[in-house]
Structure formats: C-alpha cells, structure tokens
Design a protein around this nucleic acid. Structure first.
Lengths: 246, 246
DNA sequence: CGCTTGATTGAAGAAACTCAAGGAAGGTGG
DNA sequence: CCACCTTCCTTGAGTTTCTTCAATCAAGCG
C-alpha cells in the first residue's frame, strides 16, 4: 500500500499536473495555469516538493512562523484549530490542486494546523519569493489574486449555508460539493472514498458525530445516498428525491 | 442631519484618512498605509470617490459586472445575497476603512448586493487598474495580499464561531468585535449606535429575529449589556460576568 | 484475543424555531 | 401638532431540531 503512495512526484508532475493542473477540474485554482513555459519554469524554481506526510502528520502547526503557501500534489489535508474551550475545530478540507495556508498571509504565524488525512505530497511556495515573482510576472499575480478571490467565495458560501440549512441538507451539500469537484477518489460505482473521519466531517459541518450519523441514516433511508464505512455513494443525482432537499 | 452626512469627502480625506488611514485602528486593512507620498498619489489617481449612497441604496448588485473593489470612507455597508429558497442572507458588514467586493475577484459578476446602511461614501478602486499598479508598486501588491489574507481570516473565524457557539455567545462576540474595532460611533457612555437593523444582525448571526431579541434580553438581564432601541452598551468588559460567556 | 478508537442507536433534555399577537418608533398626511 | 400607518422589535406558547449522555457495535491493531 505504501509503495505507490510514498513515491515522490517527479518534477514533471509538479509542473504539469499540479501547478499547471491541466488534468484537473479546478484549473482556475492552480497557480501555474495560463502561464508560459518559461514563466512556469521560474515558478517551479522557487518551489519545493515536500512529502510524504503520513496520515495525521502536520504540514505546519499553529506555532510555526508563516513562511509558505502550499498546493496539494497528492493526498488531502484538513485545517484544524483549537477553540478557547479546548475543543478541536475543523476549519476546512483541501484536496489535490488546491492551495492552503493563505489565511496566514499578512500574519507572522499560522493560525491553525494543517494535517495530512492520507499520504500527502505538497508543493511549497515560499511566500516572500512568490510575492517577488508576482511583481515580475503579472500573469502570476493575476492568478494568485484569483485564487484568493476564489477562496474567499468558497468560505463565504460555506458560512452562509452552514447558518441556515438543516443537518441533512448541509451533509448532502457537502457530499455533492465533494463529488462535483472530483477531488475524491471514486470506485466503479461512484462510491467516494472519504479521506476524513466522520468525526472530522461532523466537526466541519458544525454537528455532533451522533447528529451526522443520524443525518446520514436519514439520507440513506430516503434513498439519496448509500452509506458504507468510509465510502459514500450519491444516488438520485438531480431527481425528485434530491429536490426535496433543496 | 443630511447636511454633514452628504458632504463629499475631499480628496485630501480620501488619501489621508481612508486610503492611508492614519487615524483608524485598522491601519493594516487600508490599501494606502505604508506607501510613500508619490506612491499614494499614483494610487489615488486611479480611484474615484463615490457617494453619497443613502441608506438602502446599492453600491453594486448581483447583476453588475465585477469592475471594482471599494473602500469605505464614511458610513457602513451590508453585503446581502439571496439563497435558493428566496430568503435574504446577510453575508457581512463593512465599516470605515474596510474593503469590500474582494469576493468577486476572478469572477465576472458580483455574487451579492452591497447596500448602504447609512449615508455612505466609498472609494472605488477599478480592479484591472489596481492590478496593473500592483505590478509597478510591490508595496501596494503586498498590502493588497495582506488585506485579502486578513479578510480570509476574518471570515474563517466567523465560520468557526458561528458553528459552535450558542446564540448568546455569538451575539456577545459580535458586539465585542464591533466595539473593539472602533468602527461604530459611540456616545459619551459607550453606547454603540448600530447602523444595521436587528433583523440584519440576526440574519448575519444565523438567528431568527425572535431568537436575537431573546438573546439580547438574556444578556441584558445578566448585566452584560444594556439594550436600547438601536443603541447597545457593553458592560462588564472582562469581568466575571463576561467570562461566564466564554 | 482483548484493547482502543470510531460509528451507530436510543431516550431525555436543551436550544432555537414557528406562529401569532402585541408594542414601540419613525414617517406621512391631515 | 396629532392621528395614523408602516416597519421593526419584542413576548409568549408550542413544536422541531439538534445535543447530551449512555450503551452498543464494528473495525483495526498490537
């Protein structure tokens, strides 16, 4: 199992697959897309591939000085912080091609921990170097601005949805987003292999594990999803069943 | 009343007070701070002061093409969107010295409406011009990146808090943030003059108006706040009363 | 095999919501 | 200046939803 996961992505993969991201749905989110070959070269010159991070390992922690942004080349990451009362909070999940660490821009330290959910490789973008390069490559600057805008939209949508949706709708919406963004592995029959625990998922959705379990149970019995251990299958895409949940 | 509110801020005010923002607590959030005089000049050359927007008037709407970011020079703004079921949602409030519209970066249209809550003047930053200027002025680029990072942190914190706090704690936290950031007018005895309706505030906090009313009532009877119509006074700052709400 | 951790289920309780009615404030017209 | 109206805010009673607490079940691992 460790064999294929632990293999370091080649430089070619770094540039072609992740930073340029030609293959992924989320092209806009990748800093390298729309850059010329020579510009890509300059970008990849300041980056470092880091990994493998095993499940549970930290890519950065709260105490660490903010130095870099990260783009996921392989694997998945959760962003976790600790609230005043000591409880763990999951702030977000990030997948292949997505950038994280941006919430620390303009700050001295990271405000949270970035934890690998599975064997994960990341591309490290040293922030000051990136800033400098941005002034030299307007297209790159443009791209980074866009990625930040996208990030803000994403969080905002989340905020709005979380506030006013019932547990079941929230869960379904989360699963649909996961499914639509094609960031999670699916087997033959559209079963998503979730990288995070149900506990983390519950926490992210602002629910107790028990409530998530019940919501999943309800969705199952309504025929909207099929719920196996860490595999979830979305059924009835865009049918009347699902519409009842809008 | 309209007399003083309707007076257009002078160019001097634009640069010195808002873009440079020497007077405001939120210095870091203002694009002009830490720029030299000549750089400030270049920045103010691409900006336009717009106003007055009367309470309820839109600075931009969902249907509008994204063209500009805005910094508030005077007044207050709410960002409002409509959910699938037709309900109005308040995504955020912005005050003097704060920038809004950034969630549309990288998009063709604004995703929401920006509505003045009181007589409001804004400084318009045409986005493509700003981008170009950023490549010429690394300090400005740096500043904009920082502001975006700050924005992301702010929304994220909100997201996390909203999920796990009771109505009363959420309300108190909101009031404290307002109070601490010194963006809301206060009279002699620390009474904040809230620019938004309680309905908007409730919506922003993910509560029904009734629930907000009850939460405020509870906080009042506990001696943590004093609740008049649109004036709210924070008592017991950092005392045992308040600690019980952490 | 037993231990630990994560997921589920049930029953009771708390928190926020819904619906409905009443009250205060601000604006308008007489 | 007052009566009226509209809008916003508050209050109450009953219901829904999610949480809490406790127990059980399943899976992974030494």
């Amino acid at each position: 199992m460790a064999g294929s996961d632990d293999k370091k992505p080649t430089t070619f993969r770094v540039i072609e697959n992740e930073l340029d991201c030609d293959h992924c749905e989320a092209r806009d989110r990748c800093p390298g897309s729309e850059l010329s070959q020579s510009q890509l070269k300059q970008l990849s010159d300041i980056t470092t591939t880091r990994g493998p991070f095993q499940s549970g390992q930290a890519i950065y922690r709260m105490e660490d000085h903010f130095r870099s942004l990260f783009v996921i080349q392989k694997g998945a990451v959760k962003i976790e912080s600790v609230s005043e009362d000591g409880a763990n909070m999951v702030d977000g999940f990030y997948f292949i091609g997505e950038m994280f660490g941006v919430d620390a821009i303009g700050d001295d330290y990271y405000r949270n921990d970035a934890i690998a959910l599975e064997t994960t490789w990341v591309c490290e973008l040293p922030y000051t170097k990136l800033e400098t390069l941005c002034t030299l490559l307007p297209e790159l600057q443009r791209k980074i601005f866009m990625m930040l805008g996208h990030q803000i939209r994403k969080i905002n949508e989340n905020l709005v949805h979380n506030r006013s949706l019932s547990a079941e709708k929230r869960v379904l919406q989360f699963l649909e987003t996961l499914s639509d963004s094609n960031v999670v592995k699916k087997n033959h029959q559209c079963q998503m292999q979730l990288p995070m625990s149900k506990g983390d998922m519950a926490c992210y959705l602002g629910l107790r594990p028990e409530s998530l379990s019940r919501a999943l149970g309800k969705l199952s019995s309504d025929g909207v999803i099929r719920n196996h251990a860490r595999k979830i299958e979305l059924l009835q895409h865009n049918t009347s069943f699902e519409l009842a949940y809008k």
